[in-house]
Amino acid sequence: MSHEVRAVVAMKKDAPVEVTTILVPDPGPGEVLVSVQSCGVCRTDLRYREGAVGGGDGFPYLLGHEAAGTVESVGEGVTGLVPGDSVVLAWRAPCGRCRSCRRGRPWYCFDSRGAQRSMTLLDGTPLTAALGIGGFAELTLVAAGQAVKVDPAARPEAAGLIGCGVMTGYGAAVHTAGVRGGDTVAVIGCGGVGGAAIAGASLAGARRIIAVDTDDTRLDGALRFGATHTVNSLGTDPVLAVRELTGGCGADAVIDAVGRPETYRQGFAMRDLAGVLVLAGVPDPGATVTLPLLEVFSRGGSLTSSWYGDALPSRDFPVLVDLYLRGKFDLGALVSETLSLHEVEDALARMRAGDGGDAPRSVVTP
């Protein structure tokens, strides 16, 4: 049996997205059908619309991947989930069998699970679900491992953000950078990912957290998440500012939540000796960066990337929801507005124009 539901689909490259009726099948073995309650509008959705993800070969795309909802039904062999459970959807579901999982690094799983049955247009055309989720829909089909059970007391509009931007930023600070008590941290870009990185660094006990952005509104938001200092890089050299705020030394950890060559070079120069630079923002295809190799060698430390915050969703999502419910992590502050499915194109257009970026988040409630 298939279900006819409304959904937001990108039919072709750079064309406005459409709200159309799609077919969502009942779950097969190892799958879960989820009634979507909320889904954040992330910059990655815009990249799908522009054809910048997957080489543009997957059209039509069913957009949306930062979602929370309730389990509608489960397929054969699914354990630990029953209809009515509150879940946050993850775009990484470790297989447990690949060489990375076997080596104890499931966050780098090389065979992440996804639904095996396709959601389609009414004419049977298969849809590519964004990051294996497709959350801009009234119902979506995912692998059971993608549906992480969380406390139902969490507001879906806030909890859903954990599924992408919040996990990416928080994990970049806590898991990838390994921020510890007393550390100095600089975060470049204070959108959804950067704000979560600041919150993660604060929760980890960082002594000084320097937020760098070109927008005073986002910098004000950074203070709410735990930043101790802010730098508007439009009128100030951010590298000099960070060094002045750290006694000339630089930061123990720098998180680039923007992912542009110029911000990466700034982050490299902001590090203290033996400091870590974490790339958490997704670069544009074809972006390159040149660094002085002698400084790469002589400054020590590490240059690394954080893919989804080195997340293990089954471990991390419930923890983040608990922090939210205990008032330790104000996820609600990231939600600026709730939209209908018909307003997704407007939100993507604003994002493309640079009006407000991706934080605070617009959240779709199908």
Results as ranks from 00 to 15, higher is better:
residue 134 G to L: 05
residue 140 T to W: 07
residue 218 R to P: 04
residue 123 D to T: 09
residue 224 R to G: 06
residue 187 V to R: 02
residue 209 I to Q: 03
residue 110 F to G: 14
residue 155 R to A: 13
residue 232 N to F: 08
residue 225 F to V: 02
residue 206 A to V: 10
residue 95 C to E: 07
residue 194 G to I: 02
residue 111 D to I: 04
residue 149 K to A: 12
residue 232 N to C: 07
residue 145 G to L: 05
residue 136 F to P: 00
residue 171 G to I: 01
residue 199 A to D: 01
residue 212 V to N: 07
residue 141 L to Y: 07
residue 131 L to W: 05
residue 108 Y to L: 15
residue 153 A to K: 15
residue 110 F to Y: 14
residue 216 D to K: 10
residue 167 M to L: 14
residue 189 G to P: 03
residue 152 P to C: 11
residue 123 D to F: 10
residue 213 D to E: 11
residue 198 I to C: 04
residue 210 I to P: 06
residue 166 V to S: 01
residue 196 A to M: 04
residue 148 V to R: 00
residue 174 V to D: 01
residue 114 G to W: 03
residue 153 A to D: 13
residue 197 A to F: 03
residue 190 C to V: 14
residue 144 A to S: 15
residue 146 Q to E: 05
residue 120 T to P: 01
residue 150 V to A: 08
residue 192 G to V: 07
residue 110 F to K: 14
residue 212 V to H: 00
residue 111 D to A: 14
residue 107 W to G: 04
residue 218 R to H: 13
residue 223 L to W: 08
residue 179 V to G: 10
residue 181 G to W: 13
residue 183 D to R: 00
residue 117 R to A: 14
residue 148 V to N: 04
residue 113 R to S: 06
residue 96 G to A: 12
residue 174 V to I: 12
residue 128 T to I: 03
residue 166 V to A: 01
residue 187 V to W: 00
residue 187 V to A: 02
residue 206 A to E: 10
residue 194 G to V: 03
residue 145 G to D: 07
residue 146 Q to N: 10
residue 227 A to M: 08
residue 137 A to F: 07
residue 234 L to S: 15
residue 183 D to W: 00
residue 197 A to Y: 02
residue 102 R to F: 07
residue 196 A to K: 07
residue 180 R to N: 09
residue 119 M to K: 01
residue 114 G to E: 14
residue 136 F to G: 00
residue 205 G to T: 11
residue 227 A to V: 10
residue 166 V to E: 03
residue 113 R to G: 05
residue 145 G to T: 01
residue 226 G to F: 05
residue 106 P to C: 09
residue 221 G to M: 10
residue 149 K to C: 08
residue 234 L to Y: 13
residue 188 I to K: 01
residue 116 Q to P: 04
residue 205 G to R: 08
residue 156 P to G: 08
residue 127 L to R: 03
residue 158 A to V: 11
residue 190 C to F: 01
residue 222 A to W: 05
residue 113 R to K: 15
residue 174 V to W: 08
residue 123 D to G: 07
residue 147 A to P: 12
residue 155 R to Y: 09
residue 171 G to L: 03
residue 159 A to V: 11
residue 174 V to A: 09
residue 115 A to Y: 00
residue 160 G to R: 00
residue 135 G to T: 08
residue 184 T to C: 01
residue 200 G to M: 09
residue 141 L to P: 06
residue 95 C to V: 13
residue 221 G to L: 03
residue 215 D to I: 13
residue 127 L to T: 04
residue 163 G to A: 11
residue 181 G to I: 14
residue 194 G to D: 02
residue 156 P to A: 11
residue 209 I to D: 06
residue 148 V to W: 01
residue 147 A to Q: 05
residue 111 D to S: 15
